[in-house]
């Protein structure tokens, strides 16, 4: 059962996550003051059921991880550096998207994640990123009447230059 050591870590994480989420929902539901509404069943019953289920499944997973040699499965080998790079590039969108706008910030996401996938043709990636984002920006904002952000900084810049977007 040596090989399953890694996998047990996985089952443990999953078990703890279920347990944690279950307890969170349970406590939150428990501590919410009941609403004096004219309903037989309040808004708390379903969350309580789900919380109970999560706790039970969490315990079962932990039991499987520690006491039960149920399944032996290979934990896949992972390139964590690449994962963190992509996740970080994605997270940067939360800050950049509405400030620098879809075209700039989307291109940045494209270039960085292409890099994480091992691409070394940065300039070409940049061009493709620009092309994709510019095209979608035009189609969405002018064709479909949906708003992809122009970017508040970009708008300021355009204002400074005296133009309109």
């Amino acid at each position: 059962m040596l090989k399953s050591a890694n996998f047990r870590i996985g089952e443990t994480i999953l078990g703890l996550a279920s347990l944690g989420l279950g307890l969170f929902i349970g406590v939150e539901t428990w501590s919410t003051p009941p609403i004096a509404a004219q309903t037989v069943i309040g808004p708390g019953l379903f969350p309580a059921l789900i919380a109970t289920g999560l706790v039970l499944v969490g315990l079962q997973l932990l039991y499987e991880a520690f006491l039960h040699r149920l399944q032996v499965e290979e934990f896949p080998e992972l390139d964590w550096k690449a994962v963190i790079l992509v996740a970080a590039a994605f997270a940067s969108q939360l800050v950049l998207l509405e400030r620098l706008g879809w075209v700039v910030s989307g291109t940045f996401l494209f270039v960085v994640s292409a890099m994480a996938f091992g691409s070394r043709t940065h300039l070409r990636n940049l061009m493709i990123g620009l092309l994709l984002t510019a095209l979608t920006y035009l189609v969405f904002d002018y064709g479909l009447d949906l708003d992809l952000p122009t970017g508040s900084y970009v708008e300021d810049l355009v204002d400074l230059a005296g133009g309109t977007v």
Binding site: V86, F90, Q93, L97, G106, L109, F110, V111, S113, A114, M115, F117, G118, S119, N125, I128, G129, L132, T133, T136
Partner: peptide, 12 residues
């Protein structure tokens, strides 16, 4: 690299 970066872009 282009395919998956594109997928991320469209997901966003």
């Amino acid at each position: 690299p282009w395919l998956y970066s594109g997928i991320l872009l469209f997901a966003t």
